[in-house]
Write a protein that binds this DNA or RNA. Structure first.
Lengths: 198, 198
DNA sequence: TATTATAGTGAACATAAGTTCACTTGTAAA
DNA sequence: TTTACAAGTGAACTTATGTTCACTATAATA
């Protein structure tokens, strides 16, 4: 049955068009908009197409009968550990999915991403050009990695509470601990590190 | 004018309710749904509230007159480098915003997240319990970090092309390079590393 | 006190949404 | 060829959406 394979490819392609619309417009297209996307002149053709995509499990209708993706179009599947390896094609469907945004960020309003410029935290696995995600609203605690302004300069260091005040410690023997003289402004706590290859 | 301050807090709270709805339902609430959220019995009260939020710049209407957030509710602001430090409150508004999902993931369908179990890549800044993001569709190239199944076991290593075949090299002197005997299955290429503190 | 603006109500409206129906076209199988 | 069915058209229908209008209640201001 080459026919149905061809059919499913067509459907899959239309699903991709819907997804693309969603990613650029951040909302579902209406049936009229889908008609444009698919090159249809009738909404009913869209209606039938969407129903097929629902039957195939790509899309669903929520409790208010609004069209949704069955799995968030930007979420990725989560595998327990490297050692466990990759599941079979059939098992893939069973995996939990995660959105990195939701996984990493609690308070978008107070959260920033900064690019790392030096090598002062390499021993903590933070390499030059990595990105760190910083929450300004979070209370800095002992041993947290913080972004601090000390004596006029901005740095990223471990924050250590000691008997005689705060200490900023690098994760690199090249750099000596800093004991703030005049002022210590802690702008935020590093809650996450992100590295992107290539 | 305590009055208007109080007013803006109320509005801000209602904006938060909309955002919360969006984050849980992955779509904008309708005006009737907002009426429920706000405790109104008239859609017109919602209409006026939404218009105020539009005036204040929290929401916008797109070219098709559909309600949208002016900035993606999960995106975070991007700062050039740690050294540059944090901008002032006024300057914050001018920063670019990024969605981590969009920033890190190109092909959600072929992308997986795995938790790192060993210390074989520490010198590359990949620590135990970090997460790696792996694209199965990407062609593995020389010096890429790959997830490979070699002689029955799954590992993460640098992939090296040599004259006499492939070599899997750890980023840790403790581990010797592996030369696959029988089989080498490369399941995917590590495109990103993510670490979450606490 | 009287006045004026603001927040919310409730009904009515036009529009666009998703859906249904009857029909045509093209293609695969008998 | 003939048959059967899936794919798409086009119009009609229902419902829900955002919007407008006239009105009430509340609270700040003169």
């Amino acid at each position: 049955m080459r026919r149905t394979e061809h059919l499913e490819e067509k459907l899959k392609h239309r699903f991709e068009l819907i997804r693309h619309f969603y990613l650029t417009n951040k909302r579902m297209p209406s049936y009229s908009e889908m008609a444009e996307l698919f090159g249809f002149s009738s909404k009913n053709a869209v209606f039938k197409t969407v129903n097929k995509l629902i039957d195939l499990g790509f899309l669903i209708k929520d409790e208010k009968k609004r069209l949704q993706f069955s799995s968030d179009p930007l979420s990725i599947r989560l595998i327990g550990s490297v050692k466990a390896g990759f599941p079979s094609f059939a098992e893939e469907e069973l995996l939990d999915t995660v959105s990195l945004d939701r996984f990493l960020i609690d308070n978008p309003d107070s959260t920033f991403m900064l690019q790392v410029s030096g090598d002062s935290m390499v021993d903590a696995g933070i390499m030059p050009n990595d990105y760190v995600i910083v929450d300004r609203a979070k209370k800095p605690k002992n041993n947290d990695i913080v972004i601090a302004q000390v004596d006029g300069e901005w740095t990223m260091k471990y924050l250590k509470h000691t008997k005689d005040g705060y200490l900023l410690v690098a994760a690199n023997d090249k750099y000596k601990p800093i004991k703030p003289k005049s002022e210590l402004v802690i702008a935020g706590v590093v809650i996450s590190v992100v590295r992107k290859y290539r």
